[in-house]
Simulated scan of single mutants.
Amino acid sequence: MICYIGLGSNLGDRLENIRRAVDLLKASPGVGILRLSAVYETAPWDTDTKQPDYLNLVAEVETTIDPLGLLGLLGEIERALGRKRLEPKGPRTIDLDILYCGSQIVKRAGLTIPHPGARARFFVLKPLADLVPDFVDPQTQKTVARMLGGIGDQGRWRKFCEKIV
Protein backbone atom coordinates (compact mmCIF):
# COMPACT_ATOMS: atom_id res chain seq x y z
CA MET A 1 0.00 0.00 0.00
CA ILE A 2 1.23 3.51 -0.81
CA CYS A 3 0.95 6.01 2.05
CA TYR A 4 1.92 9.64 2.45
CA ILE A 5 3.48 10.75 5.71
CA GLY A 6 3.96 14.35 6.76
CA LEU A 7 7.13 15.16 8.68
CA GLY A 8 7.74 18.41 10.53
CA SER A 9 10.16 19.87 13.07
CA ASN A 10 10.63 23.25 14.71
CA LEU A 11 12.95 22.55 17.65
CA GLY A 12 16.68 21.88 17.68
CA ASP A 13 18.41 21.03 14.41
CA ARG A 14 15.20 20.82 12.42
CA LEU A 15 16.71 19.37 9.24
CA GLU A 16 18.70 16.78 11.18
CA ASN A 17 15.55 15.77 13.09
CA ILE A 18 13.79 15.14 9.78
CA ARG A 19 16.80 13.29 8.37
CA ARG A 20 16.90 11.02 11.41
CA ALA A 21 13.16 10.35 11.17
CA VAL A 22 13.55 9.43 7.49
CA ASP A 23 16.47 7.13 8.35
CA LEU A 24 14.39 5.41 11.04
CA LEU A 25 11.51 4.98 8.57
CA LYS A 26 13.93 3.49 6.01
CA ALA A 27 15.24 1.06 8.61
CA SER A 28 11.75 -0.12 9.63
CA PRO A 29 10.69 -3.56 8.44
CA GLY A 30 7.72 -3.38 6.09
CA VAL A 31 8.36 0.25 5.08
CA GLY A 32 10.13 1.49 1.96
CA ILE A 33 10.53 5.15 1.12
CA LEU A 34 9.78 5.75 -2.54
CA ARG A 35 10.18 9.54 -2.77
CA LEU A 36 10.56 12.65 -0.63
CA SER A 37 9.26 16.11 -1.41
CA ALA A 38 11.34 19.24 -1.14
CA VAL A 39 11.66 20.69 2.37
CA TYR A 40 9.63 23.81 3.10
CA GLU A 41 10.02 26.30 5.92
CA THR A 42 6.69 27.61 7.15
CA ALA A 43 5.44 29.82 9.92
CA PRO A 44 3.61 28.03 12.76
CA TRP A 45 -0.02 27.60 11.81
CA ASP A 46 -3.21 27.79 13.84
CA THR A 47 -1.55 28.41 17.20
CA ASP A 48 -1.34 31.18 19.76
CA THR A 49 1.95 29.83 21.09
CA LYS A 50 5.06 31.79 20.06
CA GLN A 51 7.40 29.25 18.49
CA PRO A 52 10.06 28.85 15.80
CA ASP A 53 9.27 28.22 12.14
CA TYR A 54 8.79 24.63 10.97
CA LEU A 55 10.54 22.56 8.36
CA ASN A 56 8.08 20.24 6.60
CA LEU A 57 8.19 17.57 3.94
CA VAL A 58 6.10 14.64 2.77
CA ALA A 59 7.37 11.10 2.30
CA GLU A 60 5.78 8.68 -0.14
CA VAL A 61 6.17 5.21 1.36
CA GLU A 62 5.21 1.71 0.36
CA THR A 63 4.27 -0.40 3.35
CA THR A 64 2.94 -3.80 4.26
CA ILE A 65 1.95 -2.47 7.69
CA ASP A 66 -1.73 -1.75 8.33
CA PRO A 67 -2.62 1.88 9.18
CA LEU A 68 -2.91 1.27 12.94
CA GLY A 69 0.48 -0.46 12.98
CA LEU A 70 1.95 2.39 10.93
CA LEU A 71 0.60 4.89 13.44
CA GLY A 72 2.31 2.93 16.22
CA LEU A 73 5.60 2.91 14.31
CA LEU A 74 5.43 6.67 13.76
CA GLY A 75 4.84 7.18 17.49
CA GLU A 76 7.90 5.03 18.29
CA ILE A 77 10.02 7.14 15.92
CA GLU A 78 8.74 10.36 17.49
CA ARG A 79 9.60 9.10 20.98
CA ALA A 80 13.04 7.90 19.83
CA LEU A 81 13.74 11.42 18.57
CA GLY A 82 12.69 13.08 21.83
CA ARG A 83 9.13 14.11 21.01
CA LYS A 84 7.15 15.03 24.09
CA ARG A 85 3.48 15.92 23.78
CA LEU A 86 3.34 18.81 26.23
CA GLU A 87 0.77 21.04 24.55
CA PRO A 88 -1.49 20.69 21.53
CA LYS A 89 -0.10 22.57 18.52
CA GLY A 90 3.04 23.32 20.54
CA PRO A 91 6.64 23.22 19.33
CA ARG A 92 8.15 19.80 18.69
CA THR A 93 11.40 18.12 17.73
CA ILE A 94 9.53 15.91 15.27
CA ASP A 95 5.97 15.35 14.16
CA LEU A 96 4.96 12.43 11.94
CA ASP A 97 1.43 12.17 10.56
CA ILE A 98 -0.25 9.68 8.25
CA LEU A 99 -1.88 11.88 5.62
CA TYR A 100 -3.24 9.26 3.21
CA CYS A 101 -3.04 5.49 2.78
CA GLY A 102 -4.11 4.90 -0.78
CA SER A 103 -7.82 5.61 -1.04
CA GLN A 104 -8.60 4.19 2.40
CA ILE A 105 -10.91 6.01 4.76
CA VAL A 106 -10.25 5.08 8.39
CA LYS A 107 -12.10 6.39 11.44
CA ARG A 108 -10.99 4.79 14.69
CA ALA A 109 -10.14 6.07 18.12
CA GLY A 110 -6.81 7.87 17.72
CA LEU A 111 -6.61 7.47 13.93
CA THR A 112 -8.39 9.24 11.10
CA ILE A 113 -7.30 8.80 7.49
CA PRO A 114 -7.25 10.98 5.48
CA HIS A 115 -5.66 13.16 8.14
CA PRO A 116 -8.43 15.56 9.21
CA GLY A 117 -6.33 18.69 8.66
CA ALA A 118 -4.51 17.68 5.49
CA ARG A 119 -6.95 19.30 3.06
CA ALA A 120 -6.68 22.74 4.70
CA ARG A 121 -2.97 23.05 5.51
CA PHE A 122 -0.51 24.64 3.13
CA PHE A 123 2.46 22.99 4.89
CA VAL A 124 0.93 19.59 4.01
CA LEU A 125 -0.48 20.27 0.55
CA LYS A 126 2.54 22.13 -0.88
CA PRO A 127 5.03 19.26 -0.34
CA LEU A 128 2.34 16.68 -1.20
CA ALA A 129 1.81 18.48 -4.51
CA ASP A 130 5.54 18.04 -5.25
CA LEU A 131 4.92 14.31 -5.28
CA VAL A 132 1.34 13.71 -6.39
CA PRO A 133 -0.50 16.82 -7.59
CA ASP A 134 -3.14 14.64 -9.28
CA PHE A 135 -3.79 12.41 -6.25
CA VAL A 136 -7.53 12.44 -5.49
CA ASP A 137 -8.70 12.80 -1.91
CA PRO A 138 -11.09 9.87 -1.35
CA GLN A 139 -13.56 11.96 0.63
CA THR A 140 -13.76 15.19 -1.37
CA GLN A 141 -12.82 13.77 -4.81
CA LYS A 142 -10.56 16.83 -5.27
CA THR A 143 -6.96 16.59 -6.43
CA VAL A 144 -4.11 17.79 -4.24
CA ALA A 145 -3.42 20.59 -6.73
CA ARG A 146 -7.03 21.77 -6.58
CA MET A 147 -7.09 21.70 -2.77
CA LEU A 148 -3.79 23.63 -2.65
CA GLY A 149 -5.12 26.23 -5.07
CA GLY A 150 -8.17 26.71 -2.88
CA ILE A 151 -6.41 27.58 0.38
CA GLY A 152 -3.78 30.20 -0.46
CA ASP A 153 -0.30 30.16 1.07
CA GLN A 154 -1.38 30.74 4.71
CA GLY A 155 1.47 33.08 5.59
CA ARG A 156 5.22 33.08 5.44
CA TRP A 157 6.96 30.17 3.66
CA ARG A 158 9.92 29.33 1.44
CA LYS A 159 11.51 26.30 -0.15
CA PHE A 160 14.27 25.44 2.31
CA CYS A 161 16.03 22.79 0.23
CA GLU A 162 15.24 20.45 -2.64
CA LYS A 163 16.64 17.27 -1.06
CA ILE A 164 17.51 16.27 2.49
CA VAL A 165 20.31 13.86 1.53
Score class of each variant (00 low, 15 high):
residue 58 V to F: 12
residue 59 A to Y: 07
residue 59 A to P: 12
residue 61 V to R: 07
residue 63 T to R: 04
residue 63 T to P: 10
residue 65 I to T: 11
residue 68 L to M: 13
residue 70 L to C: 01
residue 72 G to C: 11
residue 74 L to M: 02
residue 75 G to Q: 14
residue 75 G to P: 12
residue 76 E to Q: 14
residue 76 E to I: 13
residue 77 I to R: 05
residue 77 I to F: 09
residue 78 E to Y: 10
residue 79 R to N: 11
residue 79 R to F: 12
residue 80 A to P: 10
residue 81 L to H: 07
residue 81 L to R: 01
residue 82 G to M: 03
residue 84 K to F: 12
residue 85 R to G: 01
residue 85 R to F: 06
residue 85 R to Y: 03
residue 86 L to Q: 14
residue 87 E to W: 12
residue 87 E to G: 13
residue 89 K to W: 12
residue 91 P to W: 06
residue 91 P to F: 05
residue 91 P to Q: 03
residue 92 R to P: 07
residue 92 R to Y: 08
residue 92 R to H: 06
residue 93 T to I: 08
residue 93 T to A: 12
residue 94 I to P: 11
residue 95 D to C: 08
residue 96 L to P: 06
residue 98 I to S: 01
residue 99 L to A: 08
residue 99 L to W: 02
residue 100 Y to D: 05
residue 102 G to Q: 07
residue 103 S to P: 10
residue 103 S to W: 09
residue 103 S to Q: 15
residue 105 I to G: 00
residue 105 I to H: 00
residue 108 R to H: 11
residue 110 G to T: 00
residue 110 G to Q: 02
residue 110 G to E: 04
residue 112 T to I: 08
residue 113 I to Y: 00
residue 113 I to H: 00
residue 114 P to N: 01
residue 114 P to W: 00
residue 116 P to E: 05
residue 116 P to A: 02
residue 118 A to G: 07
residue 119 R to E: 14
residue 120 A to L: 14
residue 120 A to H: 15
residue 122 F to L: 09
residue 122 F to W: 07
residue 124 V to A: 00
residue 124 V to E: 02
residue 126 K to E: 09
residue 128 L to H: 07
residue 129 A to C: 14
residue 130 D to R: 05
residue 131 L to D: 04
residue 132 V to L: 15
residue 134 D to F: 10
residue 135 F to S: 02
residue 135 F to P: 03
residue 136 V to P: 01
residue 136 V to F: 06
residue 137 D to T: 04
residue 137 D to S: 06
residue 138 P to N: 01
residue 139 Q to A: 10
residue 140 T to Q: 04
residue 140 T to W: 10
residue 141 Q to C: 15
residue 141 Q to F: 14
residue 142 K to C: 09
residue 142 K to F: 13
residue 144 V to Y: 10
residue 145 A to N: 09
residue 145 A to R: 15
residue 146 R to V: 15
residue 147 M to A: 10
residue 148 L to K: 01
residue 149 G to F: 04
residue 149 G to A: 09
residue 150 G to M: 04
residue 154 Q to L: 07
residue 156 R to I: 11
residue 156 R to E: 13
residue 157 W to N: 06
residue 157 W to R: 03
residue 158 R to I: 09
residue 162 E to F: 10
residue 162 E to M: 12
residue 163 K to P: 13
residue 164 I to P: 06
residue 164 I to E: 03
residue 164 I to H: 05
